[in-house]
């Protein structure tokens, strides 16, 4: 996250920060898909109560 550090301190351009912003966003969305939406039976069963309690379409 060195890029992000320098961008924060310089309050630099969005273009400069775009790479790390996109990377962090992609990690978040991927995690959300795996935990909340992926339909493997094991994942579904393990995450079942959380999925219901977070309002994700579960099954």
């Amino acid at each position: 996250m060195k890029t992000m550090t320098s961008v924060k301190t310089l309050s630099g351009s969005l273009a400069q920060a775009a790479g790390s912003i996109m990377a962090v966003m992609a990690i978040g969305v991927t995690l959300m898909f795996v935990a909340g939406h992926a339909q493997s039976a094991t994942l579904h069963d393990a995450a079942h109560d959380m999925r219901h309690a977070t309002g994700f379409p579960c099954h």
Partner: peptide, 26 residues
């Protein structure tokens, strides 16, 4: 498992939020 996945989903939300913070700060 419910605790673990609840923590996991909020970590996922946190990454998305912080990416937004990064864009706003930039």
């Amino acid at each position: 498992l419910t605790v673990a996945f609840t923590v996991l989903i909020y970590v996922a939300y946190a990454f998305i939020l912080v990416a937004g913070f990064g864009a706003a700060t930039a």
